[in-house]
Design a protein around this nucleic acid. Structure first.
Lengths: 119, 119
DNA sequence: TGCCATGCCTCAAGCTCTGAGGTACAAGCC
DNA sequence: GGCTTGTACCTCAGAGCTTGAGGCATGGCA
């Protein structure tokens, strides 16, 4: 079993939520987002470009984001911005995430607490 | 885009953690676990048998669980129990999960709070 | 007798993420 | 001039996980 040396595990759809959240604060371009996610999560989470770019493209297709080309020092950047629809979706996604976390917490504590202390 | 009518999204490795947690409280058999997860998460999460059984088999192979056959009314059951190693792994897994949740929470609030109120 | 619930199991299909690879431009170094 | 490094975009094969449907067998109930 190749011990899954990547991120902790779990997660699915999390990259999308984080992207949306960061873009809701200020427009950014793909390459920037890759590091922004790492920073924002205190280095705990890290998603490669092969994960980020496809999401960006898909979200733009869905009208959740809009992009504009910028030229900075002869170099191209595609800056993404959240649309109104995107803000709505973000709120929903965060709500869903919180419900999931609450449900799992509930399950983890549900019994009568009797685990050997957690790290 | 078939709108992903399954569980909320996210999640990956969560089933394993929940299985371990429930089994740490008391031994159960597969079929029972399928509903126990549903109940324990207040109906928020639901994993089919096609998800649960393979995990159970894999965890047993890894020495995280041990099973014993029971005959109840002429019907067979494989009751699973967590080993010491399993308890250790559960603690680690929960720790990892909590770090992930904390990191995401941090990222979601990180900015200066300015989102339109969440549902 | 037929049907449903229990209880086990498997498998193809789908999705997501990883990791590696490829392009191009700019700037620095020798 | 030639080389390497950093920025910035992109793609793709492969792996892992879950879904959903299917199969098998028993027992109980109508």
């Amino acid at each position: 079993m190749p011990p899954r040396k990547s991120n902790p595990a779990f997660l699915n759809g999390v990259p999308e939520m984080l992207l949306l959240e960061l873009l809701a604060r200020r427009p950014m371009y793909g390459y920037e987002l890759v590091q922004a996610i790492k920073t924002a999560t205190g280095g705990q989470l890290e998603f490669g470009e092969g994960c980020v770019y496809p999401i960006l493209h898909r979200l733009e297709e869905q009208g959740v984001l809009v992009s504009s080309r910028q030229l900075v020092g002869g170099r191209q950047r595609f800056v993404y911005e959240v649309t109104d629809r995107g803000r709505g979706q973000l709120a929903e996604t965060i709500g869903a995430w919180q419900r999931v976390v609450a449900a799992i917490d509930h399950a983890l504590q549900g019994g009568e607490r009797g685990r050997t202390a957690v790290a």
